[in-house]
Amino acid sequence: DLSALRVEEVQNVINAMQKILECPICLELIKEPVSTKCDHIFCKFCMLKLLNQKKGPSQCPLCKNDITKRSLQESTRFSQLVEELLKIICAFQLDTGLEYANSYNFAKKENNSPEHLKDEVSIIQSMGYRNRAKRLLQSEPENPSLQETSLSVQLSNLGTVRTLRTKQRIQPQRTSVYIELGSDSSEDTVNKATYCSVGDQELLQITPQGTRDEISLDSAKKAACEFSETDVTNTEHHQPSNNDLNTTEKRAAERHPEKYQGSSVSNLHVEPCGTNTHASSLQHENSSLLLTKDRMNVEKAEF
C-alpha cells in the first residue's frame, strides 16, 4: 500500500496539472479547448457565450486583445492532455480508494470495455495498479461463464418462442383441414349439385314461356288486323247491294208514291245487322237523297 506522504505528493502534482488545464472563465477543466490569436485557451462554450454578448469583436479576458469567431481554432494537443489527466485522476481514485477533492464528473469518461483496460497499462506502473489488474484478471474467467449461461438462457427462450410460433402455425392448418373434411358430406355435395341443376332447368323453362307469350301476342295482333281488313271488305261488298236497293226503291216510288213515303220513313230507323257505323252513315245519306228525289217527283206529278 501507498504511504500517506506519497499520496499527498501525487495529489499535489495532480492539482498543479489541473490548474494549468483549467479554463480562466469557468475555472474547470477545459472541455473542447479553443485557442485565440494571443495563444490563450478557453472552453469553446465559454468563448461563444462571451462573443454573443456583444456585437462585433470582444476582448480576451487575459490580455484584452480583440477576439472574433473566425480567429478561434481548435487545439487537439490540449484536448489530449486533458484526457490523460482524467485517466490519471481515475487511476488515483481506484488505487487509494479516496475521492479526489477537486474531482469532476468523471463517470462519463469511464469505460469498462476490454480495449480501455489494455490502455490503462500505459498509465502508471504502481503496486495498487498491479493489484487491481490481478483482481480484474481473476474476475475475467467468471465473466465468460456468466456470458455462457446468459447465452444458453437466451437460446432456450428463443427455442420456446420458436416452438410456440410453430404450434400457432400448425393449429390453424389443422382446424382448416378439419373444417374441410367435416363441413360438407358427400350427400350434401350431391344435393347441392341437384339443386343447381334444377335451378338451371327452371331458368331454361322460364325463358321459352316468355317467348311463347310474345308469339301469342303477335298472333293476336295479326288476327285483329285481319279482322279489321275483313270488316272493310264487308262494308265494300254491302255498298253495291245498297245501291241495288236504292234503284228498286226509286222504281217503286215512281209507281206508288204514297205507299213509299211511309216505308221510307220506317227504313230510316232500321239498321242492317253486321255493318259498322260507317255503313250506317252512308245509308242515312242515301235515304235522305231518296226522300228529296221522291218529293221532286211528287211535285212534278201535281203540276
Rank of each mutant, 00 (worst) to 15 (best):
P33L: 05
Q138R: 02
I89L: 03
T207N: 11
I20V: 01
E142A: 06
N52Y: 05
G274S: 08
N65K: 11
L86S: 13
E32V: 04
A252T: 06
M127V: 07
A101S: 06
E28G: 01
L50V: 14
E299G: 05
V10I: 07
T149I: 05
H256N: 09
Q283K: 04
K69N: 13
E302G: 15
S126T: 02
E74V: 13
I30V: 14
E236K: 13
E8Q: 14
E8V: 06
D200Y: 06
L81I: 14
H269N: 07
Q18H: 08
S228T: 13
S122Y: 08
N243S: 07
Q147R: 12
Q59E: 01
Q154E: 03
R162S: 15
K293T: 14
E285G: 02
R77K: 08
M127K: 13
V10G: 02
V7F: 02
M17T: 00
T149S: 10
A133P: 08
H284Q: 03
R165W: 06
K37R: 08
N102Y: 14
K134E: 11
N242Y: 08
R295I: 11
E148D: 11
E8G: 07
K259N: 12
C43F: 00
R132S: 12
E8K: 13
K293N: 07
S126C: 06
N52K: 05
N65I: 05
L94F: 06
A252E: 04
K221T: 15
H278Y: 06
S145A: 04
T76K: 14
T166A: 10
S79T: 06
L151R: 09
M296I: 13
I206N: 01
I25S: 00
L268M: 04
A301P: 08
I14V: 04
I20M: 14
E120V: 03
P114A: 09
S145F: 09
V121L: 12
N157Y: 02
E299Q: 05
E99D: 07
P57H: 06
V153G: 08
S58T: 00
N297K: 05
K49Q: 06
E140D: 07
L62I: 00
V265F: 11
R77S: 07
V153L: 09
L151P: 03
C38S: 00
N65Y: 04
F106C: 14
P172H: 08
I89V: 04
N267I: 03
Y129H: 13
P257S: 05
E236V: 04
L151H: 05
Y129C: 03
F45V: 12
S219Y: 12
S176F: 00
K19I: 01
T275A: 12
D218V: 02
Y104H: 01
L245F: 11
F78L: 15
P114T: 07
F92Y: 12
P141S: 06
K44E: 04
T166K: 11
L181F: 11
L217F: 06
L203F: 10
L203S: 14
E229G: 14
Q59P: 05
E302D: 11
L94V: 07
E202K: 03
P33T: 08
D95Y: 00
F45C: 14
V190F: 05
G159R: 01
Q171P: 09
K109R: 13
S280R: 06
K87T: 14
E258Q: 09
K55E: 06
L164Q: 15
S176Y: 00
E302Q: 15
L27V: 00
F303V: 15
Y104F: 10
S156P: 14
F106V: 03
L151I: 05
V121G: 14
E8D: 10
N157T: 03
L81V: 06
V153I: 03
Y260C: 05
D218H: 04
K19R: 02
L72I: 01
S35P: 01
K108Q: 02
A107V: 08
A133S: 02
Q80K: 09
G262S: 14
R169L: 11
P114R: 13
F45S: 15
G199E: 11
R251S: 09
R70W: 07
K49N: 01
E83V: 05
V82L: 01
L136H: 15
R255S: 14
T149A: 07
K118Q: 06
D213H: 13
E258D: 02
R255K: 12
P144S: 12
K54N: 07
V161A: 08
Q80H: 09
Q209E: 09
P33H: 05
N131Y: 10
K259R: 09
D66Y: 03
K37E: 07
G274D: 14
S150I: 04
Q80R: 05
D39V: 03
T230S: 02
L50F: 15
A4S: 10
S216I: 12
E74K: 02
D200H: 04
L48M: 04
I20N: 15
P144A: 14
D244G: 07
A279V: 07
H256P: 13
S216R: 08
S263R: 06
A220E: 11
Q93H: 08
S263I: 07
V153A: 08
T277I: 09
D231E: 15
L50P: 01
S113C: 04
P144L: 11
V82D: 00
E22Q: 01
V198A: 09
N157K: 12
Y260N: 01
L146S: 08
T235I: 12
D119E: 01
I30F: 12
S287N: 09
S150T: 09
E299K: 08
A220V: 10
C90W: 12
G128V: 03
K54M: 00
K87R: 11
A16D: 07
A301G: 15
M47K: 04
P114L: 08
L137I: 10
K49E: 04
G262V: 03
L203V: 15
L5P: 06
D188G: 13
T230M: 13
S216G: 07
A301T: 15
L2V: 13
E285K: 12
A16T: 02
T163P: 10
C38G: 00
S156C: 04
P57T: 00
K55I: 07
H269Q: 02
G210R: 03
Q59R: 03
N246I: 03
N143I: 06
D39G: 15
Q138H: 10
P57S: 11
K250M: 03
N191S: 05
L204F: 12
Q11L: 14
I89S: 05
K69Q: 15
R130G: 06
Q209K: 10
P272Q: 05
S156A: 11
D294N: 13
M17I: 02
D184E: 07
R162K: 13
L50I: 08
E142Q: 11
K118N: 10
